[in-house]
Nucleic acid binder design. Structure first.
Lengths: 569, 569
DNA sequence: CGTACCGTTGAGCTTCGTCAATAATCGTGG
DNA sequence: CCACGATTATTGACGAAGCTCAACGGTACG
């Protein structure tokens, strides 16, 4: 097979010069014509010889066949010897014989047919294969039986080859495009559809051909696309745009390449377009997987940025594993941590530093930057003018502080501090956002953290607002226990808790004194003890009942994650 | 132009039966053949007549021209009258005459040419246009000057039309595909490339043809793609996969459709593929903007789901504009609302219904589904076992309830209800999530709502926990005022507020009685009045001071949004 | 015209805060 | 090892903020 497109000058197909062949081009046939000059010309037969047209007749009753010299030459038969039907038949390609006979029999059987035309391939003695077309009249007896055939045969190899080549090319292209997200179409200068291939779901060619975009989808929807097409017609330049087209139901966006379509005179006769239905792309189908890749690609840029601005020593490489380890324990509950791209984490997690307990975590200016608690406890709080403080959230190892970009004022009325000695890692807001808003598994896990954070805050709100102080305290201590258990830092019986009573008080909107009394009461009731920085649940069931504690808000149904866990590409 | 693909049976192009025409199909020529039976047959001329082949001769010295009856018939000339060169010339289409003559002159001028073959179009008196091919011998004098031409002419309209149609189709396809991100290629059974169209940047057809994938890109890289292609060959079924192929520099992902390619015998002769280079797609180029549209795609599926489960009447189309309008007012502050895809909103916003005041908004089972407040006020609340209630958030027009998938238990301990008569629209969780986590502007705006919701909850937490009841109440009323102002439902002096004192109490963790006293105190202090469902700020500055109110948490810095505001398509 | 709901007001009580004093604990330096 | 200071926990007395209960009035609605 050739790799060239058929005919570079196909734009001229309509011109009279296209099929011109001078005598020179068919050297093998020329020898014969050489003798005409002296032989003079004997009317028809010479003309036929010149046209390489052979005559034949076939007496169906006797089976006798006669061929002119030119016909014998065409078939590659001896020019002198008598010819039988079998001789002719033998010339035809084996695979063409049966269909040939079948068609011939069928045509002859119908008395209404007075004419037959068949083309078939023959193999000459030299091995070359040629296409021959026979055209003949059918002579019938009064009963309509075919008695005799008489006609001519011509060499149509070049026609056939050209057509076949085109057919093949077409077939190939059509096969390649079948069922793809690719739609091809052409429109004339008035932007009426003249042709469409692979129309998108729900549209049928016959309902599109002859119409304009405006007629199909209305003036307003068509406005953009028509404008673009007009521009192509005017400027004679191709354009690529993205358009949203209405489909059977809903709409789909197409990546549209609009090309000017020229006729033979190099004038713009219309446009030809190729549209890719983006949703049918794998990109559309498996967005999650593709987006991950995208994220990874963008990351290379971010990595550059990071390494440029970070003093490697400052980064405290020794603490990094601690941060990442905490994140792994925290998010590992939601995603297969082994599948998480390490480099992505490297880009996300920036400087890790050791912060002593009871220290502000950041100056007010950078208060809203995201941070990861690698170890230890931290908390966010709001501050009132008179110095009163409300703890908004406790951050345990693996928690991300300021997961969402906050809109909090930076006047110090909201701040973050450590409760105990901690390792805290700066996160990159850009990477974090990308992750959060990507279809990545890691993103999904992070989004769960957002949800859980919100749920925690809501629970705290309910606690403070409506729960009795005792229940509120119990709820908080149970909640912290659950969260620590989830990351393996607690067992069901209790946990190390570095919070002071004052901090607990600030979280519950109470005073340290009152917390103290509440703790004593809980202890006296045999529910829990909180001494020496250790919370011990004595009677957890009763405690849970007292607090109306339902740990389900710490978990999310897995439906959405499972759905997104597309198999690796 | 026809809209059909050329020849549905093109797979048979190589078969001998393809070009068979029975006598019946050309009715206009048949009349003549009808007379042969009685006329008997006079040798060659009848054969030619049957084949619709005309004879002609042209004496170049005298300009005399003779045409056989069949030739005259072909040209649509009078069968009896004498014919001149001009008569014949006049039959040719005007646009073919000059090229015809040019070619003829050129061929005749070269003494080496003994043969001429030209095709051109003629117009018959009835207006029909036919393609005619002349084949003739050239007779020259001893000096090589062309003296006489003699030959035949045949009607090749069907050949020409077939070819032309194929050419045109090919031309259109090729034009449509030029410069697109689409690459087409075919491979044989051994997976050697036999043809490639539009090879990706940096690859050239001649370096690909004849080679296999393994030879081009190495065994390991080719493994996946070769495996897929083999599977297509074996199963005879098309496959769509996404592959990463090495390019000139780097690599690109291709969305590859692999189709089995059949030969005439219905056997799999190889494969034909269409590949879409995803990066060249607008989707790849402008990911942020494209993702918006992209979301639109998946939506078509979601729309099905929606329309299937929604009674159109139930959807209350009349209320839809109200919901969308509210959303527009709310989000319009963050994004250019005119740029937001309406259809996207249609997919997002489902059933809109009118809900009377003080009604539960949904049964516990669907409590966590997202909803849009189109009009009126709603609120989310937590419920304790003893019936005490904590309002978690008030939802004003344009607010989205359950913006994030919550993990709240569905046991009724968390619920949503209307405070006043409202229009509430169901949102589609899938669409909403897609939006939220897309790079879309709309997504960005929605994410701001998440942030703001979180900030509101935090503020409420601080209020309940640490603010004095009076300040807490003032803060809430100021906050509601700000939020209403933002959507144009309040002026700085006050606003309609359908909340009962009890509801306010539940929001602030107080009792209705106490709220009543606080309101009186605020009124007595000349700060605000709340009567007849209307909040009026009397001394807003003092109120703000009292509440330590800082409305900045309702706004977000614009840095990130500006960055994403890619220019319109 | 009755009912239901909401707002209003009062009396008394509980919870929790404030103030203050003391004890326990922890880290640090001598 | 002890002394010391700082922080945290604990306890008591007192008072205020806010709750409960209860009664009454206004208003909307059927």
């Amino acid at each position: 097979m050739s790799s060239d497109e058929p005919r570079r000058d196909r734009g001229d197909a309509a011109s009279a010069t296209a099929a011109v062949t001078s005598g020179r081009s068919q050297a093998d046939e020329r020898r014969v014509e050489g003798s005409w000059d002296d032989a003079g010309w004997d009317g028809t037969s010479t003309a036929l010889a010149a046209a390489q047209i052979g005559e034949w007749s076939h007496d169906l009753s006797t089976g006798e066949i006669t061929l002119s010299v030119q016909a014998r030459r065409l078939l590659g038969l001896d020019e002198a010897a008598p010819v039988s039907v079998e001789d002719v038949r033998a010339r035809r390609l084996a695979e063409d014989r049966v269909p040939f006979q079948a068609v011939r029999d069928k045509v002859l059987a119908d008395p209404a047919n007075g004419f037959i035309r068949q083309s078939y391939r023959i193999r000459r003695p030299d091995g070359s294969v040629r296409w021959v077309e026979s055209r003949g009249a059918i002579f019938r007896d009064p009963e309509g039986r075919a008695m005799r055939l008489r006609g001519v045969m011509l060499d149509v190899t070049d026609w056939q080859e050209r057509e076949q080549f085109l057919q093949q090319s077409w077939h190939r292209i059509e096969t390649a495009l079948a069922n793809t997200a690719i739609v091809l179409f052409a429109q004339d200068r008035d932007l009426r559809y003249t042709w469409i291939h692979n129309p998108p779901m729900g549209m049928e060619a016959h309902r599109i051909i002859g119409k304009t975009d405006v007629e199909i989808m209305g003036a307003d929807r068509a406005a953009d696309i028509v404008a673009a097409k007009r521009r192509v017609l005017q400027t004679d330049r191709a354009i690529q745009i993205e358009v949203v087209l209405p489909l059977e139901r809903g709409s789909g966006s197409f990546d549209l390449h609009i090309q000017p379509l020229h006729n033979g005179d190099r004038q713009v006769a219309g446009i030809a377009c190729a549209g890719i239905e983006l949703a049918k792309t794998t990109l559309g189908r498996r967005r999650a997987a593709a987006l991950l890749r995208h994220t990874v690609e963008d990351r290379s840029l971010l990595l550059d940025k990071l390494s440029a601005r970070l003093d490697p020593q400052q980064r405290h490489r020794g603490l990094l594993p601690m941060g990442i380890g905490a994140l792994a324990r925290r998010l590992g509950a939601y995603v297969d941590w082994s599948a998480v791209d390490e480099q992505l984490l490297e880009a996300l997690v920036g400087r890790c530093s050791y912060v002593a307990g009871k220290q502000p975590l950041a100056p007010p200016e950078t208060m809203d930057e995201p941070r990861l608690v690698g170890n230890g406890w931290a908390y966010s709080y709001g501050l009132l003018a008179d110095g009163r403080r409300q703890v908004i959230a406790f951050h345990l190892p693996g928690d991300v502080i300021n997961l969402l970009a906050t809109s909090a004022p930076r006047d110090g009325s909201r701040a973050v501090a450590t409760a105990s000695d901690s390792v805290v890692c700066d996160l990159d807001r850009a990477v974090l956002d990308q992750l959060l808003y990507s279809g990545t598994l890691l993103g999904e896990a992070l989004r769960r953290l957002v949800t859980i954070d919100a749920a925690l805050t809501e629970q705290r709100l309910v606690s403070i607002g409506r729960r009795r102080a005792e229940a509120s305290l119990a709820h908080l201590l149970l909640e912290l226990g659950s969260r620590l258990e989830a990351i393996g830092l607690a067992d069901p019986g209790g946990y190390r808790c570095p919070l002071t009573q004052e901090l607990i008080a600030d979280a519950l909107g109470l005073t340290n004194v009152h917390i103290n009394r509440l703790l004593r009461r809980l202890r006296d009731q045999g529910l829990l003890t909180f001494a020496n920085g250790f919370v011990a649940f004595v009677d957890k069931p009763r405690l849970i009942e007292l607090a109306e504690y339902d740990p389900s808000f710490l978990v999310l149904p897995d439906a959405r994650v499972a759905e997104q866990q597309s198999p690796p590409v």
